[in-house]
């Protein structure tokens, strides 16, 4: 199931996050924001209106504490957000398996946000602003988003472009290898990234291993982001909201 038997040149980029390794340091969140030109939060923003395409959630449980890095799960089947967008601003790229959000086409209706069970989509509630001078640090390969559109993790699509250009320049075709910013920044190597179609990648291997699971598998969206844990209670949390109001704190 994980490695599709298709001979095409298509990649299916995926991620495996080892929850047991995550210390909740938040380096991935910073790296993500820097890489993707996420502006500093507005003074009026709160934890529910800020933009965090990568977000580490702290999950308190009787069994202990777990840190769950949450990002777009890149759903493959019946991609909830892509199906509902009225004007084709969300697309599942067959060449990469990445769910792309095209901000220039987005109306800002936020129907995709209501559709996403992982709350991995973020809306630009105000105009993006950078303190004087900080705009010079912007990443030239990623376009900043305007006010009133939705954005989300796209597995650092800018980096994929760069890798693809380099490959083409070197006369190579087919899927390319690249590393998203969060993967690069994680000090405890909790995140593994790669092509799930390629059986040689460690992401493919890890995703199949015992202890790997996907969030809300039961609703049938087939995410390409996998999580791993040896702790039973963490794996049990892959299911639905338990209905007990035990603490879930976002970090």
């Amino acid at each position: 199931m994980i490695a599709h038997k298709d001979n095409s040149n298509n990649a299916r980029y995926g991620m495996v996050v080892d929850i047991d390794r995550c210390t909740g340091c938040g380096a991935c969140m910073i790296a993500c924001a820097v890489e993707n030109n996420v502006p500093p939060a507005a003074p009026t923003a709160n934890e529910r209106t800020g933009i965090t395409p990568m977000r580490v959630i702290r999950y308190e449980h009787a069994g202990g504490t777990a840190f769950v890095p949450m990002m777009c799960q890149q759903c493959e089947d019946e991609t909830p957000c892509a199906a509902v967008c009225p004007q084709n601003a969300v697309e599942l790229d067959p060449a990469t398996g990445i769910v792309g959000q095209i901000p220039q086409r987005c109306l800002g209706c936020r129907y995709c946000m209501a559709a996403c069970p992982y709350h991995a989509r973020y809306f630009n509630w105000g105009d993006p602003t950078w303190p004087d001078g900080l705009e010079k640090t912007l990443n030239p390969s990623v376009a900043p988003r305007m006010r009133g559109v939705v954005e989300k993790c796209n597995f650092c699509h800018g980096r994929w472009h760069e890798a693809k250009e380099l490959a083409v320049a070197n006369g190579k075709t087919g899927p390319v290898e690249y590393t998203p910013a969060c993967v690069e920044a994680c000090p405890s190597r909790a995140i593994t990234f790669g092509d799930l179609n390629n059986s040689a990648t460690s992401v493919n291997e890890l995703a199949r291993e015992k202890g790997s699971f996907r969030l809300l598998d039961s609703i049938g969206t087939a995410p390409k982001v996998y999580y791993r844990s040896r702790r039973d209670w963490v794996r049990a949390a892959s299911g639905n909201a338990s209905g007990t109001a035990e603490g879930a704190h976002r970090g």
Partner: peptide, 22 residues
Amino acid sequence: DVGQPLRFWYTFAYPNVHSMLT
């Protein structure tokens, strides 16, 4: 309510015919 009201015509020009919102 929508973030980019001036783009309302996109829904007509580039409709996703599978969306209920369309």
